[in-house]
C-alpha cells in the first residue's frame, strides 16, 4: 500500500484501482468524509466565534474611549433622553407583549410605521396582543 499525497485521486493512490472498492472501504470513506465535513464546518464555527469576540472587544474599547476622563459622576447616571431624538429605527415608551414574540412585534411595528408613514422614532406603542380566532 502506498500513499502519495497527490492533489486528487487518493483512493487509487492507496489501493491501485477503483476495483478495490468494497463495503468496508466504502464505510471507511463515508465515515472519514462525514467527519471531514463536520470538522471543517466546526472550525468555521469556532472561527466565527473568534471574529465575533474580536469585534466585541474592539467595540467595547471604542465605547470606553468616548467617555470623558474625570467625568465619573455622569458614568453612574442613565443616559439623558430628554431633548435627544431617538435613532431612526427605534420607537419610544415601554411596550407590553402579550402572546407575541419580539421578532413578530418588531415586524408589526415596522409595518405600522411604513403604512402610516410615521417614523418609528415618533411612534409610541403601549402593547401588542395576540388575538385568537373565535
Amino acid at each position: 500500500m502506498k500513499f502519495t499525497p497527490h492533489v486528487l485521486g487518493i483512493f487509487t493512490d492507496i489501493y491501485g484501482s477503483f476495483d478495490a472498492m468494497d463495503l468496508p472501504k466504502a464505510l471507511l470513506v463515508a465515515i472519514v468524509g462525514f467527519m471531514t465535513v463536520l470538522l471543517v464546518l466546526a472550525m468555521i464555527a469556532l472561527f466565527i466565534r473568534l471574529i465575533a469576540f474580536i469585534f466585541s472587544l474592539i467595540e467595547k474599547k471604542a465605547t470606553v474611549e468616548i467617555i470623558p476622563v474625570g467625568d465619573s459622576d455622569k458614568k453612574e447616571t442613565a443616559p439623558q433622553k430628554v431633548g435627544v431624538s431617538l435613532p431612526d429605527n427605534e420607537s419610544q415608551g415601554e411596550l407590553e407583549l402579550i402572546g407575541v414574540d419580539e421578532a413578530t412585534a418588531a415586524m408589526l411595528m415596522a409595518l405600522v410605521s411604513y403604512k402610516t408613514e410615521i417614523p418609528l422614532n415618533r411612534l409610541a406603542f403601549r402593547s401588542i396582543r395576540l388575538v385568537e380566532d373565535e
Partner: peptide, 15 residues
C-alpha cells in the same frame, strides 16, 4: 455559528 454543525449533519444522506 452552531448552525454550521446542523449544516454539516444534514450531509449525512450523501454518505
Amino acid at each position: 455559528p452552531i448552525s454550521l454543525l446542523l449544516g454539516a449533519a444534514a450531509q449525512l444522506g450523501i454518505y
